[in-house]
Design a protein around this nucleic acid. Structure first.
Length: 503
DNA sequence: AAAAAAT
């Protein structure tokens, strides 16, 4: 059996649920005990997709997996934030994990960016495993899942920077992100890391009114790397302002959302197909901390012959981030809790993000807190572009301590000083508010605890429905979430923060 | 009874 546990994960024979790897193992007729439960059909979503997959795609040959299990890999076993990543490769390309950035044959300019500007010392585990897959010919497609805050951005940014030909002044790498904020953040990382390479880059997001340039007058893009949001990328492509004939690497950040039915599926597929028509050998990289079963199966149909890295959902919650639930009798008590506990206790500990469900409730909560005399900023998609930029910049510069946000910032937003996340409203599925959105929950709590830092999450529960949602979330991730005894006890909150390692 | 992008 060629599938390898790159980390110390013990096989769990009692695991009843179908996980990502199982599909592949089925195809390779695995002999692992856990897959041989005879009476189990092991499928919950119908055979239609399975048939389509087996008829249209070559069977995976997992025999060639070669994540080496030597001491190089063992170096990373103590990093909790990215333990238990499983790798499955196709074909006969051997890969070995990179224990240092030198192992990757990067240019001296890029190494300088990594060590001096980014202050990196060695690859995190997801980087050690994924970078050889990205950088080794024949440059196979990759679907990669890794924990929040474990360094996924570096994987694809480094991948883009090292695959670009510096002498060719045309777009060669494209990265699509779900929000303007994430595109800007990723471009900042890319520019910092690639500072000494001379590689050019551009952000393709809706322009703010101050930088407005008549679209027709705009010259075609010559930047070698373009990072942006789907609408703007599509617009530039169809207006022939963004040439795609030289694009050889296409990245989707937050890929599960980019390919979800209620996400950016249509835009993403359109962009992918247009590029693949122009340059057939374009490498596609899909990165996210979450891939639910539906998206997972869709992904394996749209991205052919891809290597995979994945994490079981039970292993996905960050151990360094302590999660709590608090019962609040009414709306007012939620506001008072934030006023008296979060502002008075939490503010000293670092920055806080408060997530709400709607733009409207963001505004209401903002108003209540301001009326009580507290300083807080709010971000949501209906604000003007320049206001959004300003609020994010103030928060990133540490000028503001508490930020209210819709799910605009749920994914990818990277601010290391955030160690408190408040779910003022629990995330629910759009089509059914009695069903939690597990993926969004995981992304939200991942705003705390960046790169293994300590953090705490407080889920404010107000109704029977909230209780039920919380139970479902606990069951889904197989994790017990501790209860804070009383919403209005300073001592209880101090105790919780202490237990989280923050006080 | 959404949010995101953008037309």
């Amino acid at each position: 059996m060629a599938e390898t546990n790159a980390a110390k994960s013990a096989p769990s024979p009692s695991e009843p649920k179908l996980s990502w790897g199982d599909q592949v193992e089925d195809a390779a007729s695995s002999s692992q005990a856990e897959l041989n439960t005879p009476a189990e059909p092991k499928r919950s979503w119908g055979d239609e997709v399975e048939e389509a997959a087996s008829s249209s795609e070559p069977e995976l040959n997992v025999d060639a997996l070669a994540i080496s299990e030597d001491k190089k890999v063992n170096k990373f076993l103590d990093e909790p934030e990215d333990s238990n990543i499983k790798a499955v490769t196709t074909g006969d390309t051997p890969y070995s994990s990179a224990s240092t950035f030198e192992d990757l044959n990067l240019t001296p300019e890029l190494l300088k960016g990594l060590y001096v500007d980014m202050k990196f010392q060695k690859p995190s585990k997801i980087q050690a495993i994924s970078l050889p897959m990205i950088l080794t010919p024949p440059y196979k497609n990759l679907v990669a899942q890794a924990h929040n805050g474990s360094g996924k951005t570096t994987c694809f940014v480094l991948g883009m920077l090292s695959r670009v030909d510096p002498n060719l002044k045309a777009p060669q790498a494209l990265c699509i992100c779900p929000t303007r904020e994430l595109a800007i953040q990723n471009l900042e990382v890319l520019r910092k890391m690639g500072k000494h390479t001379g590689i050019t880059s551009e952000c393709a997001v809706p322009m703010d009114s101050t930088n407005y340039m008549s679209f027709g007058k705009r010259p075609p893009v010559t930047a070698q790397i373009v990072i942006g949001t789907p609408g703007t990328i599509k617009k530039w492509m169809s207006a022939k302002k963004l040439g795609i004939s030289s694009v050889k690497i296409l990245v989707f950040d937050e890929a599960d959302h980019m390919l979800a039915e209620d996400g950016f599926k249509d835009d993403s597929l359109r962009i992918m197909k247009d590029i693949q028509r122009m340059s057939a050998h374009c490498q596609v990289l899909l990165f996210s901390a979450t891939f639910n079963e539906t998206v997972k199966n869709f992904v394996s149909r749209v991205v052919n012959d891809h290597n995979q890295l994945f994490v079981k959902k039970e292993d996905l919650s960050l151990e360094s981030v302590k999660q709590y639930k608090v019962n609040c009798p009414d709306e007012l008590s939620k506001v008072l809790l934030i006023k008296d506990r979060i502002f008075e206790l939490g503010e000293k500990l670092g920055q806080t993000i408060i997530f709400v469900r709607t733009r409207n409730s963001a505004g209401m909560l903002h108003k209540s807190l301001v009326e009580l005399g507290y300083e807080v900023t709010t971000i949501q998609g209906a604000l003007k572009q320049e206001d959004r930029d300003k609020i994010v910049k103030e928060f990133k510069d540490g000028l503001t301590q508490v930020l209210i946000s819709t799910d605009l910032l749920a994914r990818g937003f990277d601010q290391q000083q955030v160690n408190l996340v408040i779910n003022y409203d629990l995330p629910v599925k759009h089509e059914n508010h009695s069903e939690p959105d597990y993926e969004v929950y995981l992304h939200r709590i991942g705003r705390a605890g960046r790169f293994g830092r300590k953090g705490a999450v407080f889920n404010l529960l107000m109704s029977e429905r909230d209780q039920m949602l919380m139970e479902k979330i606990e069951r889904h991730f197989n994790s017990q979430i501790a209860q804070v005894a009383s919403w209005n006890s300073d001592e209880d909150f101090k105790g919780a923060l202490k237990a989280a390692g923050l006080l």
